[in-house]
Design a protein around this nucleic acid. Sequence first.
RNA 1: CGCGGGAUAGAGCAAUUGGCAGCUCGUCGGGCCCAUAACCCGAAGGUUCCCGGUUCGAGUCCGGGUCCCGCAA
Length: 313
Amino acid sequence: MQQDSAQNGTPIVFFGTQTFACHILQGLLQSPFFHVSLVITQPDKPVGRKKVLTPSPVKTLAQSFEIPTETPNSLKNYQIPPGSPALAVVAQYGKIIPESILNSFSMGVINVHTSLLPKYRGASPIQSAIVNGDTQTGVTIMLMDVGMDTGPILSYETLRILPDDTYPEVDQKLANIGSELLLQTLPKVLDGTITPQKQNDSEATACKMLSREDGKIHWDTMKANHIYNLYRGLTPWPGVWTTLDGLRLKLHKITPSEKGIPAGVLLFEDGKIYVGAMEGSIEILDLQLEGKPSMNAQTFINGFQKYNHAHLI
RNA sequence: CGCGGGAUAGAGCAAUUGGCAGCUCGUCGGGCCCAUAACCCGAAGGUUCCCGGUUCGAGUCCGGGUCCCGCAA
């Protein structure tokens, strides 16, 4: 679309996959000082029951701007095309970038990471911060090295996590901050006015890739506020869930409650649904039973009165 | 043909061995009340997803099809 006006900017190769990466890419595309000449993203993946091949959000965005895209299955034996830019930007790419690729960029590979490094190195920094009940996180821009988010820091900016923020909200805020911070940081990298700061490895923490199992609620060992944090961090995926009558029960929307109820017991009262936790309790606002559509609390109660006082496992 | 659950009133769910299709909520009307989304009384609302088969009789049993959902990927 407007790529003509951007043709003159510093050329960049962009690595990214998810929506956060889209925002970062968008920022670069709108800047007259940079020109994204190649986008490398993950291959199209089968999605849903019908296994429809779906391109990553970044690929879709790049194509709409008619930017060439590459989707290598593995970067291990991948070679950056000759004549590519000397600078690369990485955001939520989702795969390890091997040393051989890093070395292909003489001006360096810049990573936008969604935590205050060295905290939360790894795959799920935003979710982990929320799940742990942190009240602050941020974006760090760093120079990549061979380790997992271990490179020297170029710049960072903090963000307060509000008590009711969920993952998509924090992700969105960090995307805005990160995009702006990147555009401020890159020129300083290019003219050498930033001195990269080595990370303090002794303060480092790691976070793993999330799985569906991480969203399982253990009513008798989890406190209500922990469950609420888990819900906020794992929304919308993998989400929090439990089992009722041998069926998977997804909790789409919950909030902490003061009700005194035994752990794991379901209670219908005044059109509302409550469940007891190890300490405190949870009110369920929207939920979905396996094989059934998603519904709100009142609707669920209308049809499933038999589950009043049932026990969740 | 990866595994499994489902489709019944506007919504969510029942319906025994095949035998008058019900419940909760909502909607509409009336009543009560200073008032109410609260409470009481009443009413409307159905091609039981589609096509075919078995039967005196099918929401229910058999065959085929469409759609939704939970896993898995």
